[in-house]
């Protein structure tokens, strides 16, 4: 996995639950789970914007690049 979504870390920092975040950004919990597990093929700019707004953070706080071994 090259791109890691640090949504769980941000959720813990903001003391927010997954369900609450999903409701705030307007996606289903199943889709949020796909994002968290890195199974998503693409991420819409609007979703990223909503995530940043809901978690009060920058895109860089949510995304991390790791080199595959």
């Amino acid at each position: 996995m090259a791109i890691i979504f640090n949504i769980d870390v941000m959720l813990a920092r903001r003391k927010m639950q997954s369900q609450e975040l999903a409701e705030k950004i307007g996606i289903t919990q199943a889709n949020l789970s796909i994002l968290k597990t890195g199974k998503a093929k693409a991420l819409k700019i609007t979703t990223l914007q909503a995530l940043c707004e809901a978690l009060e953070c920058q895109p860089a706080d949510l995304l991390e690049y790791r080199k595959d071994n």
Partner: peptide, 8 residues
């Protein structure tokens, strides 16, 4: 279709 379904 799979790619579209996994675009969030």
């Amino acid at each position: 279709q799979d790619q579209t379904d996994l675009t969030i």
